[in-house]
């Protein structure tokens, strides 16, 4: 039992950090610009494929630097020449723009790299197991992911709260007109934020690509779970996103470890018959089976009872 708890905690934290890596860029964009960036996962995918391509040519580490820069640059261009024109038509228009963009990016990735999964490898320098708990190995690469995510979190937090740029960003989030009046170029700040958000997604892609599957459907697979993280954490709150990622990671991991169903719980009290034949499915479903839908349940509950999210200060 202790073994399962310990291992599940570790797995949950690892998964949560991976989620945070992907969601950090989204929370930045979402909180800054109010844009539900449906194409965010596409930039994550672009990051993975750029990383793959660069690792083929010069190696993994240059890819970790170059791929996000490239993706961030593309993101900034898209903001400048696409999203900015759409901005004045409201959030629905922006959302649909990113929706269409996701289609376009996926199709272009398929044209360049094909539809089959690519063999994106963990760098040899990290291809060993870091330590062993209860005979379960933990690869060094996963530890690297963990540390990297925490590093990004700390760096972003410092930039946003301690630097001049961060303060301007935060100000233009709440008072865009005032910031504009003070002589700052708000559209340019938005462009930079969008580019930075895309670059962060790409970083997640470069790192997650070798650990997961690098394939043209990887963006669609990730889907709305990122929104869940951002909204549960609270708009505009990086710490919230961090906590929400951890929470969802742990929740899902522990749910998998539990093999309980409602009938088991009633079984404890000596009730064994199923009262309603029509509800027999609910009766039999185990917690493990519903693990992946738990985040959505959490999302609905949080929004109903605490619309600002966990750490948010603003109504969504």
């Amino acid at each position: 039992m202790l073994e399962l708890v310990l291992v599940s905690t570790l797995n949950g934290v690892l998964y949560g950090m991976l989620l945070f890596l992907m969601a950090s860029g989204l929370t930045l964009i979402f909180s800054m610009m109010g844009v539900l960036n449906f194409a965010h996962a596409s930039f994550y995918m672009l990051g993975a494929f750029f990383g793959f391509q660069i690792s083929q040519l010069v190696g993994f580490w240059p890819g970790l630097i170059l791929a996000p820069i490239l993706a961030g640059f593309i993101g900034a261009l898209i903001e400048r020449y696409g999203l900015r024109n759409v901005h004045r038509h409201g959030h629905v228009a922006e959302l649909l723009f990113t929706f269409g963009l996701a289609f376009v990016i996926e199709e272009i990735v398929q044209m360049i790299w094909g539809k089959l999964p690519r063999d994106y490898r963990i760098p040899p320098s990290l291809d060993f197991s870091a330590f062993t708990i209860f005979s379960t190995n933990y690869p060094a690469y996963k530890m690297f992911m963990l540390l990297f995510a925490i590093g990004i979190f700390v760096a972003l937090l410092l930039v946003l709260t301690r630097t001049r740029v961060g303060l301007i960003i935060q100000a233009s989030l709440t008072h865009p007109h005032m910031v504009g009046m003070l002589g700052h170029n708000v559209p340019r700040i938005f462009m930079l934020v969008f580019g930075l958000g895309c670059a962060l997604a790409a970083v997640a892609g470069v790192i997650a690509g070798p650990a997961l599957v690098t394939q043209s459907n990887m963006a669609a697979l990730l889907g709305p779970i990122l929104f869940v993280v951002v909204v549960i954490g609270g708009l505009g709150s990086l710490s919230g996103a961090f906590i929400a990622s951890l929470l969802i990671g742990l929740l899902q991991t522990f749910a998998v470890a539990v093999n309980l169903s409602i009938s088991d719980i009633f079984g404890v009290f000596g009730i064994h018959t199923n009262p309603l034949p029509f509800l027999s499915d609910i009766w039999r479903v185990t917690v493990a089976q519903i693990a992946p839908i738990m985040p959505y349940l959490l999302l609905v509950l949080i929004l109903v009872f605490r619309p600002t999210g966990l750490m948010g200060t603003r109504d969504t």
């Binding site: 959030h91 869940v228 519903i290 992946p292 839908i293 959505y296 999302l299 609905v300 109504d315």
Partner: peptide
């Protein structure tokens, strides 16, 4: 609530029902 809160709840409810559809087999 209206606005984004409504949008996100509708997203969550949609995913919940869609996933439940695969789990609740008899219906």
């Amino acid at each position: 609530r209206g606005g984004t809160a409504f949008a996100m709840i509708s997203l969550g409810l949609g995913e919940l029902v869609a996933s439940s559809a695969l789990i609740l087999r008899s219906f």
